[in-house]
Nucleic acid binder design. Structure first.
Lengths: 229, 229
DNA sequence: CAGTGGTCTAGACCACCCA
DNA sequence: GGGTGGTCTAGACCACTGC
């Protein structure tokens, strides 16, 4: 059995967690570790690069590698696509288009998406259901200047998210999470009481510097976003 | 100027985004690309490994590398430490301990943390302020079986999060986000109206298989968690 | 079986940056 | 200036898996 970079990475991580090298301590150089583990320096490099990505250590040329005083912890999660999210639980997915209209972008939207005056946008409101129960309320705006084809697309059978993914797959996005109180409309669609606290995701996506879409996704009462790290 | 793995990675990404290779398409093999870009295969490998981590492509031995039909998008964010989060905005941070008690773990907590019967826990309630305004309400439980020292620690000046980070820096954690309505107590501490929708983070952390702590962090009204991807 | 990605090696050169 | 990490190369062997 040869020593792999995984072995070395795990061994180093174990020594860090055991405080063999306490927070702030300097770790031996790549060359030294390569000798200790009888492997090439590139192998040690790969191992330590991964630990650096994990946020456990901090590397600098010349000064060497240190155990971070406070480990940098980052959590990540897969950006959900509502249909898959629902089907992954084994539930039946259903979709309804509630309204569709073409409008001039309202001021707040122009400000968020950095749109010109008089930009036309497609405004869609939809609902997503899991096993027949309301799951998510989607309020979406699509920039028709950037994506004129959207005006001809049929959103009566499938949600705009799936159409967008197929049409503009490679976007930059900003996402934010917060809480809002259900108004009359949301309460009716989501089957909760007005005033109930609801979990909201908002997303803006851009492609090649142009804003494509803004969406507000309001989840059913009690919804949680979970992840490990 | 030599060709670096970054150059190759960016060039390949550009070709994918330009649909030079459309979703689902097979990308040339590492060996072919190495020839095309006049570099070593290891360099192409590094470039493509990063694209795979980004979720743009999917690699399999023998069958080769494909552009993902739907790119796997994952967002990541740095797990916030409230004091830093506040100080990063330039605001003054303040902390108050509201209550401290040692109790037997209630049933719901025993279930969540998988604790034995009659486990003693330290229960802390604290507030974090930004520029004098309520920012976050912290309701924390620490497993005294796993971390007996916590009983002697002084939480009147600094929050338990910082103490825990210094004491047990390398933990596994599960985090979840949701929305709740403010009850009387939360409303009073956070300076909002009862019933207001508030953004909540909950976190459970473990070390070496033992549950260390559970915390509920309720944020000021209107708080958002933002990230790009 | 054979083609593809996954990894290791030994050596090399370079960029950075602390002393 | 010199030590450290960052990266590239050329070659090699292996693991996986579709044919």
């Amino acid at each position: 059995m040869k020593t792999t970079f995984r072995d070395i990475r795990d061994a180093l991580r174990a020594r860090i967690v055991a405080r063999d090298w306490p927070p702030g301590a300097l770790i031996p150089s790549e060359a030294d570790l390569a000798q200790e583990y009888t492997c090439a320096r590139a192998t040690v490099n790969r191992a330590m690069r991964e630990l650096a990505e994990e946020g456990l250590i901090e590397r600098r040329r010349k000064s060497g590698t240190r155990v971070r005083d406070v480990p940098r912890r980052q959590a990540s999660f897969e950006v959900p696509v509502v249909r898959r999210e629902i089907e992954a639980t084994g539930a039946r997915y259903a979709y309804t288009l509630i309204s569709r209209s073409v409008e001039l972008a309202p001021d707040w939207l122009r400000a968020r998406l950095n749109l010109d005056d008089k930009t036309r946008v497609l405004h869609l409101i939809c609902m997503h259901f899991a096993e027949g129960l309301p799951y998510q309320h989607e309020d979406r705006w699509i920039n028709l200047t950037a994506l004129a084809q959207a005006e001809q697309a049929d959103f009566s059978q499938a949600g705009p998210n799936e159409w967008l993914l197929a049409t503009v797959p490679y976007t930059d996005a900003e996402i934010s999470f917060s809480a809002i109180s259900a108004d009359q409309d949301l309460a009716r669609h989501l089957g909760c009481a007005p005033g109930d606290a609801l979990f909201v995701a908002e997303r803006m996506t851009a492609f090649q510097g142009q804003s494509i879409t803004y969406v507000q996704l309001v989840h059913q009462r009690g919804h949680q976003l979970r992840m490990r790290y």
